[in-house]
């Protein structure tokens, strides 16, 4: 009796694991009316990416790791620099931001995260798609915006677009991964690791999201140079301002 149910439980666990890789989910989209006339003339302001890296202990407690965080920031920065060279557009660093300007940017980053979460939950996640978004999607619609107030963002006057970047990585410890398998046997859902990455290109005149790439389970180990490069290339995958040469690579 016990064995029979154990076998069933194992089968269930296998099914649910394979479901993760099998599930069809979109990860990026471009606004259909987005077209760039002169790639070389476009100015993109890149706001400070939010990078958080740590370990998820068996208990699920997030454990910050300074070495990983430092490495990830360094590697992702380098990867971003390499990408911008390859992509060939003009990148502008934001000015020093403090006080009211800092709080305004904070509001917009919070709004971007809410929009990115909504895009994932209700447009990319096909099984959970909002009915209105389904209709829109039949016409290849992708219509999400932060609103025209983005013109007031610090540094916006000298740029055409803003790029928002966020990565959050909680690596599962060995204990956590083993726990995950056993938990499945007991009918308890345990998530191992969080690897969320959001990238969005925003039109600084309209606030429209011209392009977004958002995934709660991204690849690339940001603690290594190669992994960070892979993460950055995944974040910037299908980046619409890519030069034809870079895109061909």
């Amino acid at each position: 009796m016990n064995r029979k149910y154990l076998a069933l439980a194992l089968a269930g666990a296998c099914v649910s694991v394979s479901a993760v890789s099998a599930q069809a989910q979109e990860r990026s989209a471009v606004r259909p009316d987005f077209a760039v006339v002169d790639r070389e003339a476009v100015r993109v302001i890149v706001y400070r990416p939010r990078v958080t890296v740590g370990e998820q202990s068996t208990g699920g407690l997030f454990e910050p790791r300074a070495d990983w965080n430092d490495q990830a920031r360094q590697f992702l920065d380098a990867a971003l620099v390499n990408s911008q060279q390859a992509l060939g557009h003009s990148v502008i660093a934001p000015p020093e931001i403090s006080g009211e300007q800092g709080r305004l940017l904070n509001q917009y980053q919070a709004l971007f995260n809410s929009v990115a979460d909504s895009v994932i939950n209700y447009q990319f996640f096909v099984g959970n798609r909002l009915e209105t978004k389904k209709r829109d999607n039949r016409n290849s619609q992708f219509d999400w915006s932060l609103g025209p107030g983005v013109r007031n963002l610090p540094g916006a006057e000298g740029a055409d677009y803003a790029l928002f970047l966020t990565t959050t990585d909680h690596y599962g410890s060995t204990g956590r991964k083993v726990l995950q398998v056993f938990a499945a046997l007991g009918g308890v859902g345990v998530q191992s690791g969080v690897h969320a990455g959001y990238a969005g290109l925003v039109d600084l005149k309209t606030g429209d999201i011209l392009w977004i790439n958002a995934d709660k389970q991204m690849g690339g180990d940001v603690r290594t140079p190669d992994g960070a490069a892979r993460r950055m290339s995944q974040l910037l995958e299908d980046f619409p301002l890519a030069s034809p040469a870079a895109a061909a690579n």
């Binding site: 096909v126 099984g127 959970n128 009915e131 209709r135 009918g187």
Partner: peptide, 26 residues
Amino acid sequence: MYKWIAPALAAAALTFSAPGWAHKLM
């Protein structure tokens, strides 16, 4: 004793796979 394993597994499966519920168009 065993009969709640199946619902528990179903619940676990739900957390992993795409939710099957649909939102309704008004």
